[in-house]
C-alpha cells in the first residue's frame, strides 16, 4: 500500500519536474513545479515526517510558488516566446551542466538503490513524533545555526524593503 503510493507520487514528481523544463508557457511550468512540490510533500508524509510535510505544503507549495506565479503574471509572456529561438547554444551548455549534476547525484546511490539509512527511520519518528524531535534538536543541538538563519532571513527582509522603497 505504502509502496504503491510512493511510486505514484514519485512518478508524479518526476513528471512534474520534466514539465517544468519542457512546457513553453511559464505559468504551466510553475504549475508543474507545484505538482512536484505537492507530490514530494506526500512522500515526506509516507516517511512519517509530518512536520516537513506540512511545512512543504505551507511554505513551498503555498507561499513560494504563489509569489513565483504572482511575478509571472506580471511578465509579458509574448516577449519570452520570441527570445526562446535565440538560445540554441545555451541549450547545449544546459544539457552538459544538467548531465553533470545528475551524475554527481547518482554517486551516493552507487552500490545500493536505497542509499544510506540514518538513525531517524520511519519507526523511530513514529515513536518520538516528528514535531517533538525536530524542535528538540533545533533548540538544543542546533540553536546557534537556527538563530543565525533567522538573523539572515531578517537581513533579507529588511534589505528587500530597503530596495523596494525608493524613499524611506
Amino acid at each position: 500500500m505504502v509502496t504503491t503510493v510512493f511510486f505514484i507520487c514519485a512518478a508524479l514528481a518526476i513528471a512534474g519536474a520534466l514539465g517544468v523544463v519542457s512546457f513553453r508557457n511559464p505559468v504551466h511550468s510553475a504549475l508543474a513545479m507545484l505538482g512536484t512540490m505537492v507530490s514530494i510533500a506526500v512522500i515526506y508524509l509516507l516517511h512519517n515526517a509530518e512536520f516537513i510535510f506540512a511545512i512543504q505544503l505551507m511554505i513551498y507549495a503555498g507561499g513560494v510558488m504563489m509569489l513565483v506565479i504572482f511575478v509571472i503574471f506580471l511578465l509579458d509572456l509574448r516577449r519570452e516566446e520570441e527570445q526562446r529561438a535565440k538560445l540554441k547554444s545555451g541549450k547545449v551548455i544546459a544539457i552538459g551542466v544538467g548531465g553533470l549534476v545528475f551524475l554527481s547525484l547518482l554517486i551516493p546511490l552507487a552500490g545500493s538503490i536505497t542509499g544510506k539509512t540514518g538513525g531517524m527511520t520511519e519507526k523511530a519518528l513514529e515513536r518520538i513524533g516528528s514535531v517533538e524531535y525536530l524542535s528538540n534538536e533545533l533548540f538544543t543541538n542546533y540553536l546557534l545555526p537556527f538563530e543565525l538563519a533567522s538573523v539572515l532571513l531578517l537581513v533579507g527582509l529588511v534589505g528587500a524593503v530597503a530596495l523596494a522603497k525608493k524613499r524611506l
Binding site: V38, F51, F53, A54, I55, Q56, L57, M58, A61, G62, G63, M66
Partner: peptide, 10 residues
Amino acid sequence: VLYILGLSGI
C-alpha cells in the same frame, strides 16, 4: 493545524 494552513494556501 499546519495541514489546514497549507491547504488553505493551496
